[in-house]
């Protein structure tokens, strides 16, 4: 039985644990129906993709964004790197530059704005 691995809570972090019905379209983690965020992504990937401040964001994306922003800010007050790293691999993975949503901002070889 595959269960939802989305981290919920603000201070007391734990996995959701409800039966998964689908997977995140970006990182592939199993998701329950309640944790399918914008564009079929998990909340963490949705925040990494910029949905955290988007007007059409879902409440679970908002909660993930708020938690992410707060943990990042409070780490500066406490100088405690272990506090910020209390997220699991899934949560951190979405914020690695070489993974998660590929923004494709690089220069294409065959389709530039200006024809040569």
């Amino acid at each position: 039985m595959t269960t939802c691995t989305v981290t919920r809570g603000f201070f007391v972090l734990r996995h959701c644990g409800v039966l998964a019905v689908t997977g995140c379209t970006t990182c592939g983690r199993p998701l329950c129906a309640a944790h399918v965020a914008d564009a079929g992504m998990c909340p963490e990937c949705a925040v990494a993709a910029g949905y955290g401040t988007h007007p059409s964001r879902t409440p679970i994306t908002t909660a993930a964004h708020r938690r992410r922003a707060f943990y990042s800010g409070s780490s500066h007050h406490y100088q405690d790197t272990t506090w910020y790293s209390s997220f699991d691999d899934y949560d951190r993975e979405a914020f690695r530059p070489d993974s998660a949503a590929d923004p494709d901002y690089g220069v294409d070889e065959d389709s530039g704005l200006v024809d040569s």
């Binding site: 269960t3 939802c4 691995t5 201070f11 007391v12 972090l13 734990r14 996995h15 959701c16 644990g17 707060f70 409070s74 007050h77 406490y78 405690d80 272990t82 506090w83 209390s86």
Partner: peptide, 21 residues
């Protein structure tokens, strides 16, 4: 308030908290 609350939760890293799933 939230920054002050952080101190209370730093005493129990997630490994000692009850996890579901």
């Amino acid at each position: 308030i939230l920054t002050t609350l952080v101190e209370l939760f730093r005493w129990t890293p997630p490994t000692t908290a009850r996890r579901i799933g």
